[in-house]
Nucleic acid binder design. Structure first.
Length: 356
DNA sequence: TCTGGGGTCCTAGGACCC
DNA sequence: TCTGGGGTCCTAGGACCC
């Protein structure tokens, strides 16, 4: 039997801040964009459980959080610090794993099928991991245990905060049955709406759904979410992750039509992207510019170029895409620059690519 | 309420080649 | 004169996740 765990850090960014500002521990605390006395643009990235008592949650507009709790502690984002703490955490976790897959700055799957025999041993093993993460980094986490990634993830969610939660293979269907459709990994707002229109209310309903009907509406994705609803997931814990794209984007303080302001932003973002590309020793072939207008409509414009890691190539192409394809009459809210089709600058070729 | 920034994966049509 | 099937690359957009 396979034993998979998901280690997920609790309110990670705020927990990191608590390490260096212990005084915020007893206060509702929010890490996110500057609320600017309720005028700020942007959202709550993370908040602690004290802030959640006031109805604040991650993803919420920061202006709304400010209205709910103006005297909460608002801290700016410091990604460099969180990444540093993340590396410490992942080092600890990895040492416990047969196979290790980091999925985000604060989450990792591990396959421990060889190291932990059976469910009882797995629970003890998870508690050991949790304690060691806490001891070595000072940070709390939750751990979900099951026989596949999907169920480890769903278990972890149920165990939060600061918990270890096991869902056995034979318990999976019952565990999922009464969950809301969008509690299931892979189902968001749109898919939930469509499923509800088809008469499904819960994950239990989806588990018993007519496969042909799902197939007609969603294609192969329909078959996949039905499997998920039954607690099934065959995906493996993938050790060798390679980044697929690198991008930067920014929202203007005020929506603008000023071409020079926008071009300056593109240049600044491009420079940041190139910094990361170079420090990773990569080259890129595709340049994409993202435009978001004041009315929230979005456009992506991309182009393949001669493979490069040169800032001038990125700047000239991204500025050109913007000038050529943007609607200058509309207010611009956000601009983004991204590169993809990445390959190591020298040495080995990308998998599947032949040398000519 | 008024919506960030970092990503991934999937689909689909058209160009182009054999 | 009319028309195949397979394959890859390119571009755009949608949905989702953290």
């Amino acid at each position: 039997m396979q034993i998979i765990m998901l280690i997920d850090m609790d309110y990670f960014f705020v927990a990191c801040e608590e390490l260096r500002h212990p005084e915020v521990k007893d206060k509702p605390t929010i890490v996110g964009f500057d609320p600017k006395h309720g005028e700020g643009r942007g959202v709550v990235m993370t908040c602690n459980y004290l802030a959640r008592k006031f109805g604040i949650k991650s993803g919420m507009p920061i202006s709304q959080a400010y209205r709910l709790k103006p005297d909460a502690v608002y801290l700016p984002l410091d990604y460099d610090f969180y990444e540093e703490k993340s590396r410490e955490v992942m080092k600890v976790v990895k040492a416990f794993a047969d196979r290790f897959e980091q999925v985000s700055v604060d989450e990792a799957f591990i396959d421990v099928s060889k190291k932990a025999k059976g469910y009882d041993e797995a629970i003890g093993y998870a508690k050991t991991i949790k304690d060691e993460v806490k001891e070595k980094t000072g940070l709390p986490c939750s751990i979900g245990i099951s026989t596949n990634k999907l169920m480890a993830k769903m278990a972890c969610e149920a165990g939060k905060p600061d918990g270890v939660k096991l869902v056995k293979e034979e318990e999976a269907k019952e565990f999922l049955k009464s969950k809301e459709l969008d509690d299931l990994y892979g189902i968001g707002k749109k898919t939930k709406e469509k499923l509800e229109a088809m008469g499904y209310r819960t994950v239990g309903d989806l588990a018993k759904a007519n496969t042909m009907e799902l197939m007609e509406k969603f294609g192969s994705f329909g078959v996949e979410i039905r499997k998920y609803a039954n607690g099934m997931d065959e995906s493996k814990v993938e050790e060798n992750y390679e980044v697929k794209s690198i991008g930067r984007e920014t929202t203007f303080e005020k929506d603008t039509t000023d071409t020079q302001t926008i071009i300056n932003a593109i240049k600044r973002l491009s420079a940041e992207v190139i910094d990361e590309v170079k420090s990773a020793g990569l080259t890129f072939k595709v340049v994409t510019v993202k435009l978001r207008y004041g009315d929230f409509t979005e456009r992506l414009k991309s182009r393949s170029i001669r493979r490069s890691d040169d800032p001038d190539d990125l700047i000239s192409n991204s500025v050109d895409l913007y000038l050529r394809y943007s609607n200058k009459a509309k207010l611009m809210r956000k601009i983004g620059v991204r590169v993809s089709d990445l390959t190591k600058a020298r040495g080995q070729k990308k998998i599947g690519e032949f040398t000519r």
